[in-house]
Design a protein around this nucleic acid. Structure first.
Length: 501
RNA sequence: GGGCGCGUAGCUCAAUUGGCAGAGCAACUGACUCUUAAUCAGUAGGUUGAAGGUUCGAUUCCUUCCGCGCUCACCA
């Protein structure tokens, strides 16, 4: 019999022993008086004297350490990522509860009733007077002081990661707070949250390859959305003048430290503003989110201090000049000169060449939060042209730590121009660009009912969370990142082998 | 998809030039009524990711496959 089988058998035997003592191996409702973090917050600084008269409590949690000493013992209970020690003395809990205590395994979930005290070494602890058994672990916990380090297990079995690595819990608590702050700030500005289709007959709003699925009854293929954009703007047409959506987008692309096939995007649209208005709003939102998520508008990320309180702004052409490194730094004339652009990129048009040069020479250097504005029209099929410079559009992206975290523009609301853009995209598609936009005729029809001038923006929640939590990989901010399927686990077979009616 | 690297006990990791697979934690037995990486004495635990090859002998060298990581390409 393998070690794993023996361990499982021991634990299953122990369930019967626990039952024989008169406890349920999988307990019921347990009324605790406060959570462990609450107890630590309230009493963590109190001296032994201040803990009298007795503070009586009922707490529940997972057993994370266990130290037996004959007729007494210590253990730590963990709840909501924090630990409180319990002291179990035979004289205090009685014969039956002490028998139970001796049977406990690390990872078991128990309830403890008793009073707070300080041990000889000063640690706040509960002097147990009554134990309740709440749930049995059959598998052993990760190693106690290295924690769980195997990256694959951390992602596949995130529950173990969350039990063993308290900082992981903090990342996801921060992620939740980031989203909550964004919702609150947008609501405060009159935005309403909406939900638009994830399954779409046409995909659009971004350049990416989609996932395809199928609806049986209608017998049609549908695409998992690559962006909600075109639906949100239909709502602007309909008079929902400030809308936002925080939800998943799906892009059938490669995986990397900055890319997961499903990722969370905030998109918001505001009627009667433009990209300048959104720059100001973005700066306010980001500063506020950074402050509330980390306690400061200046955030440390992988050795850099990122200042979200003053976000610099450059046009794409300025950025190419400013961040160019090495020989041949371009001049103002160069960055607008088709010959110079063609010389430094093999892209088909001057606009695509500029964007290409920007991506290769500048993007990775944008460590400080930075807004880059005025994009070439070729790369922006849904943005409005700059009136004085029709080859460019009123668009900006937000960069931080070398990553693109936001994208915004003055929305194109001229249906005739939108039709031309779709047809231009179609031509790019004919030339082999699989990611070029499809024609969405209903969207053109919506614009034909008149959409107010509008600014729209998307912010990548995962990447923003990476920066605000110090995560190197997008997988560290997504609870269950996409991995290859694991294959047979074998636990069901093991359990069946030891199942006794 | 390409390149590089990793995979050893439940967990974290060793193993010299190719020469008897090991430690700590976890587990099990026992001692211990203020410990906290508790301590002390003892016990058990391995298809070295999988399959094949070279060799007297493979954790070690070779091939293929599986999984993961890094990186490049693509993308946000």
């Amino acid at each position: 019999m393998s070690l794993e089988d023996e361990l499982l058998k021991q634990r299953l035997n122990r369930i019967r022993e626990i039952e024989a003592l008169g406890y349920r191996p999988y307990g019921r409702r347990y009324e605790f008086t406060s959570t462990i973090p609450e107890i630590l917050a309230e009493h963590g600084a109190q001296t032994a004297e201040e803990l009298s008269p007795e503070v009586r409590l009922r707490v529940a949690g997972r057993l994370m350490t266990l130290r037996h000493m004959g007729k007494a013992g210590f253990a730590h209970l963990q709840q909501n990522g924090e630990r409180l020690q319990i002291y179990v003395k035979k004289d205090a809990v009685g014969e039956r509860d002490f028998q139970l205590f001796k049977m406990l395994d690390m990872g078991d979930i128990v309830g403890v009733e008793g009073y707070l005290f300080r041990t000889r070494t000063g640690e706040l602890s509960i002097h147990a007077e009554k134990l309740e058994f709440l749930s049995k672990t059959l598998l052993s916990m990760p190693e106690k002081w290295h924690g769980l380090e195997d990256v694959e297990i951390r992602y596949r079995q995130r529950y173990l990661d969350l039990i063993a690595n308290p900082e992981v819990r903090k990342v996801f608590v921060t992620r939740a707070r980031i989203i909550a702050v964004l919702r609150r700030e947008l609501e405060a500005r009159g935005f309403i949250e909406v939900e638009t289709p994830m399954m779409q007959p046409l995909y659009g709003g971004a350049t990416a390859r989609p996932f395809v699925t199928h609806h049986n009854t209608l017998d049609i293929d549908l695409y998992l959305r690559i962006a909600p954009e075109l639906y949100l703007k239909r709502l602007i047409v309909g008079g929902l003048e400030r809308v936002y959506e925080i939800n998943r987008n799906f892009r059938n692309e490669g995986l990397s430290k900055q890319h997961n096939p499903e990722f969370t995007m905030l998109e918001f649209y505001q009627a009667y503003t433009d990209y300048r208005g959104l720059m100001d709003l973005s700066a306010e939102l980001l500063a506020r989110v950074a402050m509330e998520a980390t306690g400061s508008g200046v955030v440390e990320y992988l050795g850099h201090k990122l200042d979200f309180t003053r976000i610099e702004r450059f046009s794409m052409r300025e950025a190419v000049m400013r961040f160019w490194e090495g020989e041949g730094c371009p001049t103002v004339e160069d960055v607008s000169d088709p010959a110079w652009l063609r010389l430094h990129s093999d892209k088909a048009t001057t606009g695509e060449a500029l964007a290409d040069i920007f991506e290769r020479h500048v993007e990775a250097k944008l460590i400080q939060p930075t807004i880059i504005f005025d994009y070439p029209v070729e790369t922006s099929p849904l943005s409005k042209n700059k009136p004085e410079e029709p080859a460019f559009v009123e668009r900006f992206e937000i960069y931080a730590a070398g990553m693109e975290i936001g994208n915004a523009y003055t929305e194109l609301n001229d249906p005739q121009e939108q039709r031309r853009r779709f047809e231009m995209q179609f031509a790019m598609r004919e030339r082999g660009d699989e990611e070029a936009h499809q024609m969405d005729e209903d969207y053109v029809r919506a614009l034909a009912y008149a959409m107010p001038p509008t600014g729209g923006e998307g912010i990548g929640i995962d990447r923003l969370t990476m920066i605000l939590t110090g995560a190197r990989s997008i997988r560290d901010v997504i609870l269950f990142p996409l991995l290859r399927p694991e294959g047979p686990i074998g636990l069901a077979d093991q359990l069946r082998q030891f199942d006794q009616p």
